[in-house]
Simulated assay, not measured.
Amino acid sequence: MSSTTTFKVRPATLRDAKAIAELHNSSVREAFKSMLADTPVPVTPLDKRQAYWREAIEYAEPQVQVAMDEDKIVGFVGFDRSRDKGTPPTMGEIWAIYVASSHWDKGVGLALWDAAREGLMEEGCSNVSIWLPIANERAMRFHELAGFKREMNTAKTVQIGAVKIEEMRLKRPLN
């Protein structure tokens, strides 16, 4: 597959929930490996993760889109209005964006970002934010290349299983 390959992005269906959950867990494991050194990567049990994504797809909260490589899901994005307190209704948020490690640096993330941006604009959003682990250099670099700017005063510590992760919000206009 060349770097010029384009990926079809479509709305997720209930049948996609298991594949999304599996991809979510494997992507978290891979992304967090470098961040956590010798600490075991905290991963949500597959049945719980699948139930979450089934409900998200069913109720469109967040809206979920999947990237396809032929008939295989290789990435997904969940987006909706911002969950942060005090944000205006025109603030969107990428709740999750994950790509199979086999498809990193091949344009899947960009295809998902384009789909999320389009969907948020259709919802009347003018800005978008995302929360990212500060130590996830790959994700930070991707979003900064996509025009997101770090909001330095938003850094916070979140507990994921037995591990504490430093996160920061990034933000950008949609147009």
Score class of each variant (00 low, 15 high):
Met1Glu: 08
Ser2Arg: 06
Ser2Met: 08
Ser3Ala: 04
Ser3Gln: 05
Thr5Leu: 09
Phe7Val: 07
Phe7Gly: 04
Lys8Tyr: 02
Val9Pro: 01
Leu14Pro: 03
Arg15Phe: 10
Ala17Asp: 10
Ala17Glu: 14
Ala17Val: 12
Lys18Cys: 12
Lys18Gln: 14
Ala19Gln: 13
Ala19Arg: 09
Ala19Glu: 15
Leu23Ile: 11
His24Phe: 14
His24Thr: 08
Ser26Arg: 13
Ser26Trp: 01
Ser27Ala: 15
Arg29Cys: 12
Glu30Phe: 15
Lys33Phe: 04
Lys33Gln: 12
Ser34Phe: 03
Met35Glu: 11
Met35Tyr: 01
Met35Lys: 00
Ala37Glu: 13
Asp38Gly: 10
Thr39Lys: 08
Pro40His: 06
Pro42His: 04
Pro45Leu: 11
Asp47His: 10
Arg49Leu: 04
Gln50Ala: 15
Ala51Glu: 15
Ala51Pro: 10
Tyr52Asn: 05
Arg54Gly: 06
Arg54Cys: 13
Ile57Pro: 07
Glu58Asp: 13
Ala60Leu: 06
Ala60Lys: 12
Glu61Lys: 11
Pro62His: 08
Pro62Gln: 07
Pro62Asn: 11
Pro62Trp: 12
Gln63Lys: 09
Val64Asn: 02
Val64Cys: 06
Gln65Arg: 04
Gln65Cys: 07
Val66Leu: 03
Ala67Asp: 09
Met68Pro: 05
Met68Tyr: 01
Glu70Arg: 02
Asp71Gly: 04
Asp71Arg: 09
Asp71Leu: 05
Asp71Val: 03
Asp71Lys: 11
Ile73Ala: 14
Ile73Ser: 04
Gly75Cys: 13
Phe76Gln: 09
Phe76Pro: 07
Phe76Cys: 05
Phe76Glu: 09
Val77Trp: 02
Gly78His: 08
Gly78Thr: 08
Asp84Gly: 00
Lys85Trp: 07
Gly86Trp: 07
Thr87Asp: 06
Pro89Cys: 12
Met91Asp: 03
Met91Thr: 05
Glu93Tyr: 01
Trp95Glu: 10
Ser101Gly: 03
Ser102Asp: 15
His103Val: 02
Lys106Val: 02
Lys106Gln: 15
Gly107Arg: 05
Val108Glu: 08
Val108Asn: 04
Leu110Lys: 14
Leu112Cys: 11
Ala115Leu: 05
Ala116Leu: 02
Arg117Gln: 14
Glu118Ile: 03
Leu120Trp: 06
Glu122Trp: 01
Glu123Cys: 08
Gly124Trp: 04
Gly124Tyr: 09
Cys125Pro: 12
Cys125Ile: 11
Ser126Glu: 15
Ser126Lys: 09
Asn127Pro: 00
Asn127Thr: 13
Val128Gln: 04
Ile130Thr: 08
Trp131Thr: 10
Leu132Ala: 13
Glu137Val: 08
Ala139Leu: 06
Arg141Pro: 00
Phe142Asn: 09
Glu144Pro: 01
Ala146Thr: 02
Gly147Asn: 12
Lys149Ala: 12
Arg150Leu: 09
Arg150Phe: 00
Arg150Trp: 00
Glu151Ser: 00
Glu151Pro: 00
Ala155Lys: 14
Lys156Glu: 15
Gln159Lys: 14
Ile160Thr: 06
Ile160Asn: 07
Ile160Arg: 07
Gly161Thr: 09
Ala162Lys: 12
Val163Trp: 03
Arg169Ala: 14
Leu170Met: 13
Lys171Thr: 06
Lys171Glu: 10
Arg172Asn: 01
Arg172Ile: 06
Pro173Met: 07
Pro173Thr: 13
Pro173Asp: 12
Asn175Lys: 08
